[in-house]
Write a protein that binds this DNA or RNA. Structure first.
Lengths: 104, 104
DNA sequence: TACATTTGCAACCATTCGGTTTCGCAAAGT
DNA sequence: ACTTTGCGAAACCGAATGGTTGCAAATGTA
């Protein structure tokens, strides 16, 4: 069962979880309270997020705090980057057209 | 059947298609030749990509050329952006630690 | 010790997904 | 007129997905 980050962020609940724990670590119960679903369901999502290293866990007594491995999201950024060049080039071309119109 | 861009880019074949047609429009047959799959399968992927407006089509005779709507990828960039702030902040904090060590 | 809380995990289920096969239609070639 | 080519859509299939339920393990508390 190969997990990759793109599959992980495909699910809207998982994206919401990521946003939720981006700033502070939270327990599965606390996370589940923010959604219209069960703790077990959240637990499954956390497992997937952990498998692809988007999330790390820290045990404290009987509670487990989950937090975001924010650096991992850079992988998505890098993928987007190859297209950024394209849309910036097109913008520059538009810019050229506009300045040509201005001069003409 | 609600399509969103995150679900669209979750599939590796679809990401490959996106990269393939990023620079030049291609027909389904031409795209399929680049993969280990059938034209019909590619056609299904193209349908999904079109549904969420990642791809546009242009009919030329009996051929249909598909090309990337590169601006749409900005939506992913915007999602990543909320986390970019976090990892840049952490980098600055690390920077502070390093400069403090240097001074000390 | 006895009991409650927090959690992960396995089993199960309905739905969705990705792929193949088949079909029908329209455009182009002979 | 007939065949070939390029295409989308529908039917079908095995696998994966997301969710629920039930249970066991570990920790904290009376």
């Amino acid at each position: 069962m190969r997990r990759d980050i793109f599959q992980a962020i495909a699910d809207p609940t998982r994206r919401a979880i990521i946003t939720l724990i981006a700033l502070q670590a939270m327990t599965p119960n606390a996370i589940a309270e923010n959604f219209n679903t069960t703790r077990q369901s959240v637990s499954k999502h956390l497992r997937i997020l952990t498998e692809c290293e988007l999330v790390k866990q820290e045990q404290q007594g009987r509670e487990i705090y989950y937090s975001l491995e924010v650096e991992k999201i850079k992988e998505v950024d890098q993928w987007v980057n190859q297209f950024r060049k394209i849309w910036e080039t097109r913008f520059n071309q538009l810019d050229d057209v506009l300045s040509t119109l201005k001069k003409g």
